[in-house]
Amino acid sequence: MTTPFETAMPLRGELLSKYAQFYATFWRNGHVPRRTLELCRRRIAAIHDCACEWSIEDAAAALSTADADHVRHGRFAAFDEAERAALAVAEKIPFQHHDIDDEDVERVRAGLGEAGTVTLMTALAFFDATARLRIVMNAPDHPAKLTDIPLRDGALY
């Protein structure tokens, strides 16, 4: 199956392949809970108002309708401490990255350790990059609830 993302990047297949392999690492290496990654990915999609990215759901992360609504509107009180720590950084990645401070990162490190912190920070940067890429390429919305692990080589559906 050719995905909308693949349709938008037909001339640079090797680049797309490397991008997807890299992106899949976050979901597969086990350092960050998949639910945390999904919360952050969708928060960044919401900040960018990227309908294409938002419309993709990871079935395994199983966000409830209430979870998704909280994330869309930036309300994090219902989530646990580790999730709130991750979302606090995700909130600043798109347009406030210089406001991420030592305390923000330490909250993440306390919960996820060094390998988890590296994985999460890199994932957040690429969730941001992917949303931007979808927007600038006018990638079509293609709502999907994906059950493949993990999100068919990452959320590059």
């Binding site: 490397k18 890299f22 290496n29 590296v118 994985t119």
Partner: peptide
């Protein structure tokens, strides 16, 4: 610093 997650570092380098 990225070396704490070698798989992330390796695939980032390839990309």
């Amino acid at each position: 610093m990225l070396g704490h997650a070698p798989d992330v570092l390796g695939r980032f380098g390839a990309l």
